[in-house]
Design a binder for these strands. Structure first.
Lengths: 206, 206
DNA sequence: AAAAACATTTTTGTATACATTTTTATATTT
DNA sequence: AAATATAAAAATGTATACAAAAATGTTTTT
């Protein structure tokens, strides 16, 4: 696994200190590489929202907060139906099969949080790719990947797993039945519900 | 000016070759720095959509295409009203004054395309910042900055400048009059119109 | 004693050198 | 002659060394 992925894991597992500046030399000894790939990884993670600036210089691991979660899910619930809309008529059994593949993988018990997040995105992406809308899809992808940082809550205290899985099944059914309006609405609600649950929880614990 | 900005300018002014891989050594001699800052800049520009991957390795300047433009403006027209909605009640005369400042700067004749794009974003941002929604705002910012690549068309053949300026004035008026619904609708139309004009033009020339 | 100026230390940014990977050209095989 | 295998070239990725900038601690001044 490359350094960037390792750092992501370590952010999720709270191995790295939160709130204070991450030092490049420290990380380079920790991960056994020079500072250059560390620097690359930090810049990249910053641009993806996994890290935030620390004063004039350096980066740090930002706090999770409900405002950010709310923004992410608000955007997802707005943009993903747009994407599904553009994809809808082009979705074939090939895409549906691929989506089901990822869905069944999500039933596994011993998956890391990151893997779970990636599979969740893979499921949605399998459907969206029929839209052939690279730019819109990349934004939605980035939002989904940012949401991974909050997955610890959803799969932990909130116990959202079974709900999410059954909603995925329902979505696939609606797509199979070519019921576009219903599918779009269902997708929007699916995302809104997950968001609301998460935001409420975050507001409580803060 | 730093290397990244220089490369942006050179992309906009079609100085760098489009479609073929940009070579790091070539760029490093061109801009008089070593390969490291060049590499940083290329990675960063790729993540911002100014460059796209070239095969397995390297990056290239992508073609402008109507699909991307349509996606960008579709997202903007969806997300920016959300942002204005959240900002609305918190917009004071301070923000309006700042917006007017940028607007009057936009009347200038001898502005580079990048400067014009930045000022246009600064105008919108001045209003949006009252929302205090960092995550949503960053996505919208990134979309606005991607749109800069297409500004050559809007300020050139499409001659959109005066229309845009008067629409900005109308928006500010609606905000002053606390007419939220009208302002949201107007903003959405403002973006949609710019997008439709651009997309139609791009479809024609391609 | 508080504030400002200076020196020291720490940290990041960049250049050069080397390792690895990818691409291209050439030779070999069928 | 086309396809595959191999070797050479070119490009990117990474390590180390150095330069610039930022942060910190100390001294000086008021």
């Amino acid at each position: 696994m490359n350094v960037k992925q390792q750092i992501k894991e370590d952010i999720l597992n709270c191995v790295l200190p939160r709130g204070k500046a991450l030092r490049q030399v420290e990380l380079s000894t920790r991960y056994g590489v020079s500072r250059i790939p560390i620097r690359d990884a930090l810049l990249s993670l910053k641009s993806e929202g996994w890290l935030s600036p620390h004063g004039k210089v350096g980066v740090m691991i930002p706090d999770l907060n409900w405002r950010e979660a709310e923004d992410i899910y608000l955007m997802r619930s707005t943009l993903e139906p747009l994407l599904l809309d553009k994809a809808f008529s082009a979705i074939s059994s090939k895409e549906l099969e691929e989506a089901r593949q990822y869905q069944s993988e999500l039933d596994g018990e011993n998956l890391s949080l990151i893997r779970r997040g990636e599979l969740n995105w893979a499921f949605h992406q399998a459907i969206y790719q029929a839209a052939n809308r690279g730019t819109l899809q990349r934004v939605v992808e980035s939002l989904n990947k940012q949401a991974i940082r909050y997955l610890g809550f959803q799969y932990g205290p909130l116990n959202y797993r079974t709900t999410s899985q059954s909603e995925h099944s329902e979505l696939l059914l609606m797509i199979e039945n070519k019921d576009k309006d219903k599918a779009l609405e269902h997708l929007k609600r699916h995302i809104e519900k997950a968001g609301a649950l998460l935001v409420n929880y975050l507001k409580e614990v803060q």
